[in-house]
Design a protein around this nucleic acid. Structure first.
Length: 443
RNA sequence: GCCGUAUUAGCUUAGUUGGUGGAGCGGCGGACUGUUAAUCCGCAGGUCGCAGGUUCGAGUCCUGCAUACGGCGCCA
């Protein structure tokens, strides 16, 4: 039963003239009485198959003529090069085996009309039928792009002697603000789903020195935007003996590595969804500029945008700011009052912290947040007290500083945000198989 | 939490100043030996989101509710 021949093999021309067996699903289908044209798809592509009544037994002819969309079939036949076939090759069918029938009373619900571009992304119907929508061309392409990006993250870090390291998903305390924690019952106590690997990564930093992960993070944000999910995949790294600049250099190199690999591995897929490859080349080859928070605020004020020093830069301001950039850029040195305690104050001016965000162009916004950590015991206690944060839940975190603290830092990258940006998706939901947001946990 | 928009057949939708809800796709039946989202003929399929109200009469006007989608704050 194992499958050894894929549609992409046939389309490449390597078996033209051969008698072959193809396994796949019926994508489309048109018949003219004594001839049937059907499009067979598998994970690698689609090919036109032709059944002529004279070439096969009546039973086989009828079964392929009546096979509904998404029926699974095994077709035997001869591969022929033919200019009239989309893709240049077709299969002349001689034998048909229907493996999984589709019932006419409940035909495949995802029709062309259901996938017509309705304003601003996917309809409720497609979201409800996500389990079936996955097998359509656009979703299949997105999943391949996503896989390439995950692979690139692993190869970037592993090629540089980073150790992959896992943190728990059940945690007792917050990384970000407490309001965005998912609370789960835990044998009579309360636990939370993790928002970030970071605090646990810092614990392993003295052991491994260079570490990374790709894992889900959970944020109970009610945000309904094209860049938010409640469950997203988080690529995070942490390095010992490094500061903000080193971490930023890794962030830039990682993103460029992802863009370059994506061009190498998935150019066809990018083009099939209408993505301009020149943009991806530019992201792969350019340096990413770095600007300080103060400069950004001045620029915005110069443009007449209402913003006061100390205020965080929200999405609308990011958009104004990134309008004139055609590559990602870093925003650094935010005011201390806008950031949590684990960001290290700048020794040259402690109004600021040593941090950075990487903002993607084309209006996609923040894809990376990172920086240097507050690494001495004295400084971390001071920062926690300044913020009015209770010490107790962070005792283990403070301990790390009590036993040979060293300068260190890291970043977190929203993998779906990167996928969404590089693929040019309208909505972050398009790049994850089963998206989770504040209103949807099904299917 | 806030603001906005929508809800008509399995899907995408039309529906005028209130007067017996139309179409395309998909499905079923038929014709057709080179189609490209094939074409042509026919058939089935609707508590117009739910509950009230106004009216001789409501898909259409009003009120409430539900659900969804879009956006904001926050963030990756």
């Amino acid at each position: 039963m194992a499958k050894t021949l894929w549609i992409s093999d046939v389309l490449s021309g390597s078996c033209t003239g051969d008698s072959v067996e193809l396994k796949g699903w019926v994508k489309r289908h048109r018949s003219s009485g004594k001839i049937v044209f059907m499009t067979l798809r598998d994970s690698t592509g689609e090919i036109q198959c032709v059944a002529k009544k004279a070439d096969l037994e009546d039973l086989d002819f009828d079964s392929i003529k009546n096979a509904l969309i998404e029926s699974s079939v095994i077709l035997k036949g001869k591969v022929k090069a033919d200019e009239r076939a989309p893709g240049g090759h077709e299969l002349l069918i001689t034998k048909v085996t229907i493996i999984g029938e589709v019932n006419a009373e409940k035909p495949f619900p995802i029709t062309e009309s259901a996938m017509e571009d309705t304003e601003g992304g996917e309809t409720e119907f497609l979201l409800d039928n996500r389990h079936l929508y996955l097998r359509t061309g656009r979703m299949t392409t997105m999943l391949k792009i996503r896989s390439s990006i995950f692979g690139s993250i692993h190869s970037y870090f592993r090629n540089r002697d980073f150790i992959e390291y896992q943190a728990p998903s059940f945690v007792a305390g917050a990384v970000e603000g407490g309001s965005t924690l998912f609370e789960v019952p835990y044998f009579g106590r309360k636990a939370y789903l993790t928002q970030s690997w970071q605090l646990y990564a810092e614990a392993a930093m003295p052991a491994l020195e260079r570490l990374y992960t790709i894992a889900p993070s959970f944020r109970a944000e009610k945000s309904r935007t094209r860049r938010h999910l409640t469950e997203f995949w988080h690529a995070e790294m942490e390095i010992a003996w490094g500061g903000n600049d080193e971490v930023m250099a890794h962030g830039e190199a990682l993103v460029r590595h992802i863009a370059k690999n994506l061009l190498d591995e998935r150019s066809d897929e990018l083009e099939s969804i209408g993505r301009d490859l020149n943009l991806i080349s530019r992201y792969a080859d350019s340096k990413y500029p770095r600007i300080r928070y103060d400069e950004a605020v001045e620029t915005l004020q110069g443009m007449g945008v209402e913003i006061e020093w100390g205020q965080d830069l929200d999405y609308s301001k990011e958009k104004v700011l990134t309008k004139d950039y055609d590559v990602p850029h870093f925003l650094t040195h935010y005011p201390k009052i806008a950031k949590p305690f684990y960001h290290r104050p700048d020794p040259e001016d402690d109004k600021y912290v040593l941090c950075h965000d990487l903002l993607a162009p084309e209006g996609y916004g923040e894809i990376i947040g990172g920086g240097e950590r507050t690494w001495s015991e004295k400084e971390i206690l001071q920062r926690i007290d300044e913020e009015g944060t209770p010490r107790e839940p962070y005792e283990f975190y403070i301990d790390i500083r009590r036993y040979g603290g060293v300068p260190h830092g890291g970043f977190g990258m929203g993998v779906e945000r990167v996928c969404s940006w590089l693929s040019g998706a309208d909505h972050i939901r398009e790049v994850i198989p089963f998206p989770r947001d504040s209103r949807r946990v099904t299917p």
